[in-house]
Design a protein around this nucleic acid. Structure first.
Lengths: 228, 228
DNA sequence: AGGATGCTTCGGTTAGGATCGAAGTATGAA
DNA sequence: TTCATACTTCGATCCTAACCGAAGCATCCT
């Protein structure tokens, strides 16, 4: 039939376990070297190198040379969003891993989705923002309200600066673990950065999970109360 | 790393060209037999049979036995939406087919996206509905307004009946050719059915493209004027 | 019953690509 | 310069899975 774009190509790119693991590792938002990605994929550096070349040729990855290191990141945030949506789809279809692993609960609670907060806490934050009228929503669509803008200023986020960026302020991103939307876009990124700067939370070393400090958790939960 | 759902599995399912072509064929919304899908994939029935078994095991397809035929469809509309989003992503990353083929322009103009209208005409319709205030939108989110409900009643669509269904009324679906949103959901489906019933358009035989009659095209363009 | 059609299962072949060892290139350090 | 580190390229191996011919079921028609 050969109609439309070639979905088999990207399917094949994502379809290899080693490549999928490397992409998942890059969802953490950090730039990683080829050696680190090889470890993430469970393969040697040689093999990783060919995989990375293919992913780059497919425009899924971007590369930045720095000295003798070569740092890889997802090509842009749309790739991250796309990967998260695949995860949501996969989880919904029962394509889970054989053994959930010990880190799974932490991931479900709070994790990084490329550059913003996801998991239970990410969903809770968005729900709470909507409930208090800081964000309007229709279906999947999100928009910051006037009152929301001032509320965020109190938290310490310069909404005005974010608005000047080309990137959309609010985007919804489907959370694979909660199967609900969480907040992406430049605002989602700014909020996560804010929490990390304040020391409320930190990124786990070798994982995408986000670990809250006891005090940070208290503050976060107070700032974003449960809805209903 | 082994974090989260197994995206490699669905990637691999979609990553085979024969399977991708069969899935694309099913985006036409019609239930197809194994023999028809074999032709769509460019393979023999034996091979197609094993592919179809895999796709079904992966919960991407549903199967309905009818006499000695076996009709396959996409498991549900979320699969269709997912495939269209992959097409959009693929097109955005430059993953196009080598030769666009003669049917390409017709596809870009108007085609079926599982059960609703997509392509230039699909995008035009949604834009027009938003412009006249029949549908509210925030970002990707869509909602039918009061005035929109009466307007659709005039066209001949029983919105009340649609509302009772479990399926969402309005959904936005990213159009791969236009790279903009078009209208999905039960309302999108109802509108397309309405056009087909009225004889404004018909489905092409072996393709996903939708062919408008001269009169139907006139009516459609008048009903959904361009929004500058 | 007998024959035709639609599809699946089995068996064997083949090709693509994932893999790694070894060698080659680039950058930095001593 | 010499050595070490980070990465890529080359070459060869090996394995999976896509593929089809042939045979086996199931259903329908006459």
């Amino acid at each position: 039939m050969k109609e439309g774009p070639d979905i088999a190509q990207i399917g094949a790119l994502i379809g290899d376990p080693a490549r999928a693991n490397m992409l998942t590792a890059l969802m953490g938002g950090k730039a990683l070297t080829a050696t680190e990605l090889a470890a993430a994929g469970g393969i040697t550096v040689q093999t990783a190198s060919t995989h990375l070349a293919k992913l780059e040729a497919g425009n899924l990855l971007a590369q930045r040379k720095q000295g003798r290191h070569r740092y890889f990141t997802l090509a842009d945030d749309s790739v991250g969003k796309f990967l998260e949506s695949i995860m949501g789809f996969a989880a919904g279809r029962g394509h889970l891993r054989h053994k959930p692993g010990p880190k799974e609960p932490a991931l479900r609670k709070a994790r990084i989705c490329y550059d913003h907060l996801a998991g239970d806490y990410g969903v809770r934050m968005l729900d709470s923002l909507i409930a208090r009228g800081a964000i309007d929503s229709i279906g999947d669509g999100l928009a910051l309200t006037e009152s929301g803008e001032t509320a965020l200023k109190d938290i310490g986020i310069d909404v005005h600066a974010l608005k000047s960026s080309r990137r959309p302020l609010c985007r919804s991103c489907l959370d694979w673990s909660e199967r609900r939307a969480h907040l992406a876009g430049s605002l989602g990124k700014a909020l996560l950065s804010n929490f990390l700067e304040k020391g409320w939370a930190r990124r786990a070393a070798e994982s995408r999970s986000v670990v809250f400090s006891p005090e940070g958790e208290r503050q976060f939960l107070a700032l974003f109360p449960a809805t209903k």
